[in-house]
Design a protein around this nucleic acid. Structure first.
Lengths: 157, 157
DNA sequence: GGTGATTGTCAGTGCTGCTGACGATCAGCG
DNA sequence: CGCTGATCGTCAGCAGCACTGACAATCACC
């Protein structure tokens, strides 16, 4: 391996900021950075990053049951309840009874909600651009692709 | 923009898995994946990823005050208390009074603790390698460098 | 020697995400 | 038709994590 010579106690020397090479540290702090940028960007719209995430899948899927949206977003269905509660309280989405299967709700945008979503999405996109601004243009796309790759490796399907 | 024709309700079309392009989604799920791999790898050593993080900075800095370690790791000093509590309960580190400044503790490895750390670190490294295994060899280094870059952009210094 | 800052600690709080339970509903089968 | 098992939304409770605000002890400095 790398360290055969140095197996003494004390600081394994000459490793400046060793924590900066740990993926756990890097991912955590990267996420903190993005969360900060995003929350500032979304603050005028009364939304946070998680709520916008729900709206993104809702926009992509159309009116959907809570469970389908939860699965797609990778959150628990009990977590989705509170998310929809908050969005409904802000009149961004509504729950509608689904006649074909009365166990389910259909969640869909209000008109005003979809307008708000489109604007908030642009603000969030700007925050993401700022987040990746230290990277070259093409590197930002690669960065996303790499994240997708490591995530896909962790999913069975 | 993209959707002028379709401003009706319903799915802004032809955007398959739009959430897979959101950095918030990607970072969150990447972190989940890493946490899962790491916790499995560290389980035999009775440590978790956060505790190993503390040990990494402790190893890099040598015996240190709690506050210095906390700053370096980017956590709050009140959070560090519980982390050190846990590590001390496992006899991995010890708190020693620091005579030159009696407000501080000196936190340092026990002998047994440093051995455990070295082994756990290897296990964690293996988990990280598995995490980045979907990437090309050089891409993994680039990936880390990119994370460092976006993080550095968020820090004043 | 008095003032203000620093260190470690603890209680309390907020956020997030889970488990376990519940009623309502559906699907399948006899 | 009536059962049985599964699914959906909901809620209560709990665990992890990080923070604020307070406190005593200690230091640095004037």
């Amino acid at each position: 391996m790398s360290s055969d010579v140095v197996s003494k106690v004390g600081p394994t020397p000459e490793q400046p900021r060793a924590e900066l090479n740990r993926l756990g540290y890097l991912l955590k702090h990267a996420q903190q950075r993005l969360t900060e940028l995003t929350s500032v960007a979304l603050e005028p719209y009364g939304l946070n990053g998680r709520e916008l995430g729900v709206l993104v899948v809702l926009d992509a899927m159309g009116p959907t049951s809570q469970q389908d949206a939860a699965r797609r977003l990778g959150v628990d269905r009990t977590t989705m309840v509170a998310l929809i509660d908050a969005l409904e309280a802000k009149s961004v989405v509504v729950r509608r009874p689904f006649e074909e299967d009365r166990r389910r709700n259909v969640v869909e945008f209000t008109e005003r909600g979809h307008e708000l979503f489109k604007q908030a999405l642009q603000a969030s996109d700007a925050a993401e651009r700022q987040f990746v601004s230290p990277l070259e243009e093409t590197a930002a796309d690669l960065f996303r692709a790499q994240l997708r790759a490591v995530i896909a490796a962790g999913e069975p399907s």
